[in-house]
Simulated scan of single mutants.
Amino acid sequence: MAAKKTPARKLTAAKCKPCKGTGEVSRPVRVGRKHRVVGEQTGMCLACFGSGEAPTN
């Protein structure tokens, strides 16, 4: 009797929490002596390095 093969599970990585899986985060842009906020700039997420997947330990 042949042994039954179980289908391999696909492992899906969890989404990165700071960027919510997008790989980009917004940072406030501050100008002047009083450092007033004038807008936001989008940059790469430093927690997942832009991949959007949660880092594993």
Score class of each variant (00 low, 15 high):
P18D: 09
T56C: 02
G23K: 02
A2V: 04
S51M: 07
V31I: 14
K5P: 01
K17G: 04
A2T: 03
G39T: 12
Q41F: 01
F49H: 13
K10H: 02
K15V: 03
K4L: 07
G23Y: 02
R30C: 11
P18S: 11
R27G: 08
F49R: 14
L46H: 12
P55C: 13
A13C: 04
G50D: 08
G43H: 11
H35E: 15
E53D: 09
E53P: 07
T56I: 10
V38A: 12
G50R: 01
A54K: 03
V25K: 06
Q41S: 14
R27Y: 13
T56A: 09
R36L: 10
R9D: 06
V25E: 10
S51Q: 07
K34M: 05
R36I: 11
K10P: 03
E40T: 08
A14Q: 01
Q41R: 15
C16R: 00
R36S: 12
T56S: 12
K15T: 06
A13W: 06
K20I: 07
Q41N: 15
H35C: 07
M44G: 12
M1G: 11
C45L: 09
R30E: 14
L11K: 00
K17W: 01
V37N: 11
T56W: 05
R36F: 12
K34P: 03
L46V: 05
E53T: 08
P28Y: 04
A54M: 10
A14Y: 01
H35L: 14
K10N: 04
C48Q: 01
R33L: 07
A13H: 01
L11D: 01
R9G: 02
E53G: 08
T56G: 10
T12V: 03
P55Y: 09
T42G: 09
R36G: 00
T6P: 06
K17H: 13
T42W: 11
V38R: 09
T12F: 00
P7R: 07
V29H: 08
N57K: 05
C16H: 00
T56D: 13
G39A: 10
E53K: 04
G32F: 13
P28R: 08
R27D: 12
T6G: 02
K4V: 11
K15Y: 03
C48H: 00
A13E: 04
K17C: 02
P28Q: 14
T12D: 00
Q41E: 15
P55S: 07
V37I: 10
V25F: 07
